[in-house]
């Protein structure tokens, strides 16, 4: 059976994609952020996972407000990004794993999570930036991916509790996949930030640090917040923390933090990076 060996978190800000394209790893503004990744890349290099399940939100590339799925799962042989309107570089494609995708879709719908399945899906910076950060050599050693997009664009967005339960069901789905594969789950986005309104620029460092602590030891405490609480405490776009909770729900073993980094500001955001090991 497939095994979830760990969970990874990262912000997915577009500016990071541009900084990667411009090789700003040693730049004084960017270094404290990029320095959070080598220990995680070393762990990935040692563990060699076969598949990455990437939980992110589409920001208006693949989905528009005409049809806005709450939970959407990619089931394509490959995924590409595209022009998002502001010049983020387009990248070579990421490999998919349609059989695993369909297994996950079957199992989730079986557990009453009525997801939207996508045999064609463009992936935006929410997906590509974390993939580039964790696998700087992904073009040479392609890892298979399953993108899962959760709506954070238009309220009502799913509650933290619902996303945590979604993650638990996702974890059971992977654990029942008859294949000896190692899987990592990416929870992307956040932490606190707000782009719009007079409160633009809002960051809440104490709340972010509390979330990075409790996501390890007591995720169910965090799942008791409402989506509205997250907007108030973490900013309008800080509600992306529901994506971390979906990741954490999938880790059903003995979970411990192997690495963490937090830096303010990256663009308008408190950027949290974590490696959680999921042991039997």
């Amino acid at each position: 059976m497939a095994r979830i060996i760990g969970g990874l978190t990262s912000s997915h800000i577009p500016a990071i994609g541009n900084a990667i394209a411009r090789n700003l790893f040693e730049d004084p503004y960017w270094k404290p952020f990029f320095d959070g990744f080598p220990p995680i890349r070393a762990w990935l290099d040692e563990k060699q996972p076969d598949v990455a399940i990437v939980i992110y939100n589409d920001h208006g590339l693949n989905f528009f407000l005409d049809k806005m799925p709450t939970f959407a799962i990619g089931a394509a042989p490959e995924y590409r990004n595209d022009d998002e309107g502001w010049g983020i570089p387009t990248l070579p494609s990421f490999a998919g794993d349609p059989r695993l995708s369909w297994h996950i879709i079957e199992q989730l719908v079986g557990e009453e999570f009525d997801v939207c399945s996508c045999q064609e899906m463009t992936v935006d910076h929410g997906f590509t930036v974390p993939m580039q950060l964790f696998w700087d050599d992904w073009q040479k050693k392609p890892i298979r991916t399953v993108p899962i997009s959760i709506n954070t664009v238009q309220h009502p967005i799913p509650s933290p509790a619902r996303c945590y339960k979604f993650g638990q069901a996702l974890g059971r789905a992977i654990a029942s996949y008859p294949s000896d594969q190692k899987v990592v789950i990416l929870g992307t986005g956040g932490l606190s930030h707000q782009l719009d309104g007079q409160r633009a620029g809002f960051i809440n460092k104490p709340f972010d640090l509390m979330c990075m602590d409790k996501i390890v030891s007591d995720p169910e405490l965090l799942a008791r917040y409402t989506a509205h609480d997250l907007v108030r405490e973490a900013g309008a776009q800080g509600a992306e923390f529901i994506l971390w909770l979906a990741m954490r729900g999938a880790l059903q073993g003995h979970v411990q933090k192997l690495h963490g980094n937090y830096h303010v500001p990256i663009s308008n955001t408190g950027a949290g990076t974590m490696l959680l090991e999921n042991a039997d």
């Binding site: 664009v153 238009q154 309220h155 719009d196 309104g197 409160r199 309008a236």
Partner: peptide, 8 residues
């Protein structure tokens, strides 16, 4: 929430 429009 002050200074915030929830997009609903």
């Amino acid at each position: 929430i002050p200074g915030t429009i929830i997009f609903n």
